[in-house]
């Protein structure tokens, strides 16, 4: 018993080891996988997050009126695995380190994140296309020239057409 007695006395002298949360500060690591955060500015609506989400917490659908893409996230279904953030090509979806998951009863049946991105029109044919995202352009091109800007403002068909015309 002597062995443990030493530990017990040391514990008594050291005081509590738990954090006094919520009355004091607690430790939240930077990498903590908390509630999903979403940035529609960066989103390209590629649905990768929906494809890799094992619990079906994310749904990316075309909007009813056809003006854009709707991103819906249900917190209660999320398993905080971080797959969406890992595979997101533009870091539009990521785990914040917010661990406060309690919600009001009135919010129970509405999505935690319900956001959308609007389509833009192709400069040539006015067809609806997904807007180019700056973060992805920076990754794809060494230098973003006026030419790149012009090309990305066209729909795939018009882009092809324009390339042929030039040849």
């Amino acid at each position: 018993m002597a062995g443990f007695f030493k530990i017990a006395i040391r514990n008594f002298l050291n005081g509590p080891t738990t954090d006094p949360y919520p009355f004091g500060e607690t430790f939240t690591p930077e990498k903590y996988k908390g509630i999903i955060a979403y940035d529609p500015e960066l989103c390209i609506g590629c649905s990768t997050c929906e494809y890799v989400c094992p619990s079906g917490a994310i749904k990316v659908t075309e909007k009813d009126d056809g003006t854009g893409v709707r991103f819906v996230f249900w917190l209660n279904t999320c398993s905080f695995c971080g797959n969406c953030g890992y595979y997101c090509p533009t870091d539009a979806v990521y785990n914040s380190n917010d661990f406060h998951t309690a919600r009001h009863q009135s919010e129970k049946f509405i999505p935690t994140i319900d956001d959308d991105i609007s389509y833009v029109r192709c400069k040539r044919c006015e067809q609806k296309i997904k807007a180019p995202v700056e973060a992805l352009l920076i990754r794809a091109y060494d230098e973003i020239t006026e030419e790149v800007r012009h090309q990305t403002s066209l729909c795939p068909d018009c882009r092809r057409q324009e390339q042929f015309e030039r040849m």
């Binding site: 690591p29 990498k31 695995c81 890992y86």
Partner: peptide, 10 residues
Amino acid sequence: SIWGNRMDLG
């Protein structure tokens, strides 16, 4: 701190 979860590291 390193993986972000206490049990399921991913």
